[in-house]
């Protein structure tokens, strides 16, 4: 299958290894990966700050660039921005735009629920705790939400991690508590955000986890920054990087 890679702006510049791992994983799953260096940002920071007009400019660029393509992104919140929140920006959306939004998938969702691939022949002999990032979980439905009473169905990240050789998965006591990142919240309410991050690091340390993983590098970057500053806790690693390991 031909897939077009949507690389979140901060991944491109700060965590290219996650996007590289995403390429590896998609190729291993049999996909032909395309990438356009005309892409920049989906507009989420602007949208979450309320600056809908500024976000709309970037959303329009994004939709034109990915028009009608099957798009995969290694971030739940950036995916949700495109698939769920482009409706909020006052844009005139064409049928093609709607299709583009509908055909934008988060990586683990794409692997498990579109390709039907669960075993990526990965090997990662470590204890790993899973941080389910909020937008992937509660907006895209990529897992069991602790608040709801839906029929239980494992999320794609759990399905994929279960197949990784040598990996022991640890679920934290509060399964899906927010890490406190929250975009500009992390800077505007830095103390609150950090306190939440500390608490989440503690929860993700349970069961002697060596690594904490998830499908949103923004949350992981926040958690890992706190982990390094305080000098203890599991190291952050994106789900794509674990799946790329052999």
């Amino acid at each position: 299958m031909d897939v077009h890679l949507f690389v979140p702006c901060y991944l491109d510049q700060v965590h290219p290894e996650v996007a590289m791992a995403t390429v590896t994983v998609l190729r291993r799953a049999g996909c032909t990966v395309h990438y356009s260096d005309q892409q920049t940002c989906c507009g989420q920071p602007m949208a979450n700050t309320g600056c809908a007009d500024d976000a709309a400019v970037l959303a329009r660029r994004h939709l034109d660039l990915f028009a009608g393509k099957t798009t995969v992104c290694p971030s739940g919140s950036c995916t949700s921005m495109v698939s769920h929140h482009y409706h909020d920006l006052g844009l005139r959306l064409s049928a093609t735009d709607e299709k583009t939004m509908h055909r934008t998938f988060e990586l683990s969702d794409f692997l498990v629920n579109v390709l039907g691939v669960t075993d990526l022949k990965a090997r990662f002999p470590h204890k790993v705790s899973l941080h389910q990032s909020c937008h992937g979980l509660r907006e895209l439905g990529l897992g069991v939400m602790s608040e709801r009473r839906d029929p239980p169905k494992l999320g794609p990240a759990e399905v994929l991690l279960a197949q990784v050789e040598g990996l022991t998965l640890v679920m934290p006591e509060r399964r899906d508590e927010c890490c406190g990142f929250g975009g500009t919240f992390a800077v505007a309410e830095a103390d609150l955000s950090a306190r939440m991050g500390h608490d989440r690091c503690d929860q993700l340390s349970q069961g002697d986890a060596e690594y904490m993983t998830g499908n949103d590098q923004s949350c992981l970057m926040h958690l890992d920054g706190i982990r390094k500053r305080r000098g203890k806790g599991p190291k952050a690693i994106h789900l794509a990087e674990i799946l790329a390991c052999q």
Partner: peptide, 14 residues
């Protein structure tokens, strides 16, 4: 204030 930055990568993804 509360977090270390990750190390700078040698190059961007693009």
């Amino acid at each position: 204030k509360h977090r270390d930055l990750p190390p700078a990568p040698k190059q961007s993804f693009r």
